[in-house]
Design a protein around this nucleic acid. Structure first.
Lengths: 354, 354
DNA sequence: TAGCCTCTGGACAACGTTGTCAGCGGCAGG
DNA sequence: CCTGCCGCTGACAACGTTGTCCAGAGGCTA
């Protein structure tokens, strides 16, 4: 079958379509040995300028490009790292991914990435596929809560750093934001502006950051001696329909909230929409969102947020990863990056009814 | 050196840290042949349930994971595609990248991506690195204007599809939006609302889409018999400082513009800021932006845009790529996706002075 | 019981590269 | 003139997997 494929007329260089020249071909054409070609390609010393020139000519004439799969197989290092995140299309992960890429690039590595879509099975599938590719290291934003499946890989030498959320049921490096503290600050900010009935709309409770932010919310409320009505709190998927329903429920509860704390940027955006769409006589509702987002300052009112630096998160994780790859040992690190409250107006609205 | 590394005490399974078990190890432990392990790992038929069980046990006991580098070397296909774009952190490219990833996933392929940062050299470096990895196909958002360096790769069988902008100086598949038509519609819309002095702020003129949008702008102006003042038009990098300066220049020209057409989402966002910051007595200025963006509808005024579907762009390109990989031949395709004008208010403001 | 067929399992080469090692000149010193 | 060394080059094995091919066991038929 392959032999019957039409090839170029030139018998001496006849190759099937899709078959690339190898160092052997280059060596034959240049009239040198295989290893000499390897030396030239890798810039190793010990090659006469004349020989080198002949090899270079053969390389360009044949359009040779070194096959890195073979190189990787031989050398054992792939010069690539894997990044598993939730959704590349989420504006929170774009900058994070880019930051990881830049660090990788500085270390001469390529980035292979995949979206888990917040599905633990898909996360595992992706991670193991990356391990099979023998990536040198992994940066993982966990979707699942159990990463014991990674233990053999880590033991085998795949450096792994978790970002945004810690690993589940194994001890591993992690770089996270201070979700608890940020959430507590956000809610305390609302309380300081006179609110007593504050709602919390968050991501799925299984997600570590969501749970931490809920904990921060409860801590702030408890700290101020305020009760929390079940109708004010809702955790779940961040699709607009669910968030809309949850926001509406909190706003129309028997004891309606006068302020909302949104657990991440997806939720915040939907809440902004809900608040903007309320019919005219509705009283203004205060809002603080976790995660900054573009144009938050140009909405009216501008949206007060607890900002975390996604790029910094990615950079820190990647730096840690490469330090591990360079041989840094020691116990797993847990790095916690601070968050920053940015008051812009929406969080400073007074409660509409006492 | 390697032999002096501390290893586990168990001599029978002693391996250097970082060395993984191979099929040979599994075969030895299970007491079967190498090929039998291969059969089990790949789910090939012809293995008794009992043998299969023994092999599976050995696999889990040793923590074996197939080395895909070796597999790739042997099989010739990598089941991975490369995506080279400008900046993963740009909200336009996130969804595009995700869409490409989903299509790749449906075909069992991984996605390796890299950001060119709009630097032609970096683009070439990335593309060639991906070719050396023997990706099966490439999706490229070109930064440079000359892709002749890719010709040997394409000839060697690397399927390549360009997205968002066509390839330069080679004939290749491309999937683009109708920049010219979209821009013409946008400007025509402003003209229909009474504007006669309309500015255009675009990306660098070397970028195909920027040039096309400029052409659309000029076509619409010429079509309405309107003159274009040089002070109204500015193309260049999209960093906020430059865009601010350009916008200010157009707004404070001898003949100030009453409307602005922004050439992409980065520019639009900065223009929105500039307009929002103008001191009170300043007359309102109409605005239409190329590219939709999140929350555009919630600004005041809401921003009228020419929307292009980034995800659709990516999906279409990836579909085309995999069709090529599945053997679809024929001349290079040029797919042009339509744009859609979404009136929201900012484009419908009347000119402030006749 | 001989012969044939099926089914399972294993030996071996090959993929394209790099590391090791040995050979072959030429040149300087004795 | 011989010895030893050095600079350049190439032969060969190995990396871990898969495809090809063959051997042996066992069951069936004649």
């Amino acid at each position: 079958m392959t032999d019957t494929a039409p090839g170029p007329a030139d018998r001496t260089t006849a190759r099937r379509y899709g078959t690339r020249p190898t160092m052997k071909d280059v060596a034959a054409r240049a009239g040198v040995g295989l290893k000499t070609v390897s030396r030239v390609v890798n810039g190793e010393p010990g090659v006469t300028p004349d020989t080198e020139r002949r090899v270079q000519e053969a390389i360009t004439a044949l359009g040779f490009r070194r096959n890195d799969s073979a190189r990787i197989l031989r050398k054992g290092r792939t010069a690539s790292i894997g990044l598993v995140l939730e959704d590349l299309a989420d504006p929170f992960y774009g900058p994070l991914s880019r930051a990881v890429e830049e660090v990788a690039r500085a270390h001469g590595a390529l980035l292979i990435n995949g979206s888990s879509a917040e599905d633990p099975d898909r996360e595992q599938e992706l991670v193991l596929a990356l391990c099979a590719r023998r990536v040198d290291g992994l940066v993982v934003i966990p979707a699942g809560g159990d990463h014991r499946y990674l233990a053999p890989e880590i033991a085998a030498g795949v450096a792994t750093v978790f970002v945004d959320r810690p690993a589940g049921r194994i001890d591993a490096d992690a770089v996270v934001s201070d979700s608890f503290g940020g959430a507590r600050d956000a809610v305390a900010h609302l309380i300081a502006h006179g609110h007593r009935r504050i709602g919390f709309l968050g991501d799925q409770p299984g997600i570590h950051t969501a749970a931490e932010r809920l904990r921060g919310y409860r801590a702030a409320m408890a700290g101020a001696g305020l009760p929390v009505d079940d109708a004010w709190v809702s955790l779940g998927p961040t699709d607009p329909a669910r968030v809309r329903a949850a926001a509406t429920a909190a706003l129309e509860a028997a004891e309606p909230v006068t302020a909302l704390f949104a657990g991440n940027n997806r939720v915040t955006v939907t809440v902004v929409r809900v608040l903007a769409e309320r019919p005219a006589p509705a009283p203004p509702v205060a809002l603080v969102g976790f995660d900054d987002f573009e144009l938050a300052d140009l909405l009216s009112p501008a949206v007060t947020v607890v900002a975390q630096d996604a790029a910094q998160l990615g950079r820190t994780a990647a730096d840690l990863l490469f330090r591990r790859l360079d041989g840094a040992g020691g116990e797993p690190h847990r790095v916690v990056l601070p968050t920053r409250l940015i008051p812009r107006g929406s969080g400073e609205l007074p409660p509409s009814a006492p």
